[in-house]
Amino acid sequence: MITVQFELNGKAVSVDCPPERRLLELLRETFHLTAAKPGCGIGRCGACMVWIDEQPVNACLVMAWQLEGRRVRSYENLATSTESAPVRDALARCGGLQCGYCTPGLAMTLTHLHRLEPRPKRDEAALLLAGNLCRCTGYGGIRRTLAQLFDPAIQAPLDESTPT
């Protein structure tokens, strides 16, 4: 057992657990934060995406000992923040979600990409989003979401606050 101290959604937390305990399990079982989903457990599907120090990471691939002093942000926190508002709005408008199980992870990655400076081009964003699997949409609505968010010609009316 080890004691790990890290920041979770803006609050300092401390956990006693085996060093190899996965972050995904800590989030769900210890902190009862279930937005990160156990889709595969091996980093292939992206359904458990969180941010560690502002970078998207599959929570199933991170062990407790790696968390010391890090800042972890889960979708519960992001979902109520203005940073993700354009992403959530675009996903809803564009049909970027169906069953919704992949949605929190997808929104974590998308929001990260949307906040990058300079903002990636649509094709670059699409490549970077390929680690988030969706079995429902056939990616049609997700492509439209990408166009809204990453194509300057299309995003203007949706995201007026963004400088062009």
Partner: peptide, 14 residues
Amino acid sequence: RNLDGYFIPTLADA
């Protein structure tokens, strides 16, 4: 037994 041996289409394949 998992998505590393059974592949489904990704955004890049769509």
